[in-house]
Design a protein around this nucleic acid. Structure first.
Lengths: 112, 112
DNA sequence: TCGCCATATATGGCTGTACTATATATCTGC
DNA sequence: GCAGATATATAGTACAGCCATATATGGCGA
């Protein structure tokens, strides 16, 4: 509650965020983490310890495909969206719209 | 994934939904559950087994105050928002706006 | 050249929220 | 009188994301 109040809010959205970022181009884990923080202007921050297991999960399900690429003496694993991943992204996008719309209908009631 | 795909999406929003509904007037648990389903047009459904413990939690924290009222031979526990609860509601509303706005900035990128 | 920070990935154990399953009891309409 | 809606209660479970910790490279300043 104190430090990271949105902890629970984020649940169920991490996958959608990652898939959406991979829609544009292939990216590696660390980059994805930084990008989420940047584009959300610091509102959303995923810890690396959440991110990597999440990427493995997505790969295990066949939604993304990772590939090691050397960057100097350092290695990076770049992920790209699979056709299945693209379909799931579309589904999760519409689920998010329905969900956030429903929450807003209840929470944003104009009260005189 | 099959029956209740938003299971994780809902985490962290239940409290906000309940507080928002109690802002209008005092309500009892069962009523709150029905109202969430109705206003969200079936998108959001909280099982009673989630609802009651949640209400106890809110009461334990002093955000709501419950009171037994007989309704015929049946008893109902009506909850009303406390001043603290009202403050928390305002906080959670703005957290939700920030959160959903941030998700939208990442997910709803207009891609040519 | 040595130390520090950012970059980059990996993983075991924990927390907290909502669910499943099950239980009790009253009211209403057929 | 019996089915289904109303109304509340709770023990046990699942699982996403976090904390702590570990390893290793690249670049910058003192």
């Amino acid at each position: 509650m104190a430090i990271m109040p949105d902890r629970e809010l984020k649940k169920g959205n991490a996958e959608l965020l990652i898939l959406a970022l991979l829609e544009e181009k292939t990216r590696h884990g660390y980059e994805i983490g930084k990008l989420i923080a940047a584009r959300s202007e610091g509102v959303l921050r995923f810890h690396v310890a959440s991110l990597y297991p999440l990427l493995y999960r997505l790969e295990r399900r066949g939604w993304v495909k990772g590939e090691w690429e050397p960057a100097g003496g350092r290695r990076r694993r770049y992920y790209r969206l699979t056709p299945t991943g693209r379909r799931i992204l579309a589904e999760q996008r519409s689920r998010w719209r329905a969900f956030s719309g429903a929450v807003n209908r209840i929470v944003e009631v104009r009260h005189a």
